[in-house]
Design a protein around this nucleic acid. Structure first.
Length: 357
DNA sequence: AATTTGTACAACCGCAGACTA
DNA sequence: GTAGTCTGCGGTTGTACAAAT
């Protein structure tokens, strides 16, 4: 049984011939595709519209980049996949000229095996043997010096990447020290579903580690489970420089340059800090504040959904502290979770970051 | 040289959401 | 409100080719 668009005519399946490719390219470059269901008939092809669309998108589009993936592209795929999972179309948006299909194939045929060979779970990016040790529902430790080291910690054996709760409960408050980032609460149209009926979801910040590029990611998202991202990702390579503090990384975020117009694009903030920001690009790179609109926000509440990052290294205290807690569910997925509003940084390099609560 | 096995990637399938009449 | 259509997505299968036996 074919698709509805295929039932109207006899359609050919399987690999495309060069003649078919030529017909499709000639038609689309001349007329555009319009409605894909009408393309085959108008282009003189015995294919279904869906097949034409796929062929164009995955193979014939002029802006496609052919050839094997570069190391940089591979790293990007791994890093974004760690955050987004199998959302291939979203991942592909971070790789100009690559299609979701291409990324997916590359992942399944190559990256997945590499991760497995490194003893990493391709789904969670955790060490395969470490999953259980990272689970700790009543307040445990995660420390790079033991066997439950995250991939990031493994890749940086000298790193001190330590977190402990010191309590017997999974939720506890956290001190907020400078420098400090404020992640504003996120407005929700359905006020009744929000905590205390405030109409706001507290923001959450989630730190994850990279398997391949020494990348520590900070994921900012709503507590509304239907909405994830945008994400802030900060490359720990910058932290390797003694002069680099987290606040300077945030400076780099705030002065980041181009992304693309996609809502969830990676925003490359330049080599200086190797920082990237996932989210809509900030049009005015000279402005101090990083602004992004979480998916689902309407233009009306866009302002309230801003992720604000102060630019002055010494002025983080001016942002408001929000009560915070750990969410150990995150640890199943990756490494270290810090929730609700605040993260503190100790004015030492980022691989000496410690979250205490 | 013939056959089997592995790999890369192109293409298909089914589903879900958006849109429209 | 609903059924039909279109589009996009992720999972899966099919195919061509290379490497191994």
């Amino acid at each position: 049984m074919g698709h509805h668009c295929c039932t109207k005519q006899k359609v050919k399946r399987g690999l495309w011939s060069p003649e078919e490719d030529e017909k499709l390219v000639r038609f689309i470059t001349t007329h555009g595709h319009g409605s894909w269901s009408s393309v085959p008939k108008l282009a003189g092809l015995q294919r279904c519209g869906k097949s034409c669309r796929l062929r164009w998108i995955n193979y014939l589009r002029p802006d496609l980049k052919r050839g094997s993936f570069s190391a940089q592209e591979e790293r990007t795929i791994i890093d974004v996949h760690r955050i987004l999972g199998n959302r291939w179309s979203q991942i592909a948006k971070h790789l100009p000229g690559r299609t979701d299909n291409e990324v997916k194939n590359f992942w399944n045929s190559c990256i997945k095996k590499k991760l497995l060979a490194q003893g990493l779970d391709p789904n969670t990016h955790n060490l395969l043997s470490s999953t259980s040790s990272l689970k700790n529902s009543n307040g445990g430790n995660v420390n790079s010096s033991n066997n439950s080291a995250t991939p990031f910690q493994k890749a940086n054996s000298s790193s001190i990447f330590h977190m402990s709760t010191g309590t017997s409960t999974s939720n506890c408050s956290m001190d907020v020290k400078i420098p400090f980032v404020t992640l504003p609460s996120v407005p929700c149209p359905d006020q009744a579903t929000t905590p205390n009926g405030t109409g706001l979801f507290p923001p959450m910040l989630h730190a994850t580690s990279s398997t391949s590029s020494n990348l520590v990611s900070f994921e900012y998202h709503q507590q509304n489970p239907s909405a994830a991202s945008p994400y802030v990702m900060v490359d720990s390579a910058a932290a390797g420089r003694s002069s680099s503090s987290f606040s300077s990384l945030l400076n780099s975020l705030s002065t980041g340059l181009l992304g693309n117009e996609e809502e969830s694009c990676l925003w490359d903030c330049g080599l200086e800090a190797n920082a990237v920001l996932a989210g809509p690009r900030h049009e005015d790179a000279s402005q101090v504040q990083v602004q992004q609109q979480p998916p689902g926000l309407t233009p009306d509440n866009e302002k309230n959904g801003k992720l604000g990052v102060e630019s002055d290294n010494c002025d983080f205290m001016s942002t408001a502290a929000i009560d915070s807690s750990f969410d150990f569910d995150f640890m199943d997925r990756s490494s270290v979770g810090v929730a609700a509003g605040g993260m503190y940084y100790n004015l030492s390099p980022i691989d000496q970051l410690a979250w205490n609560c």
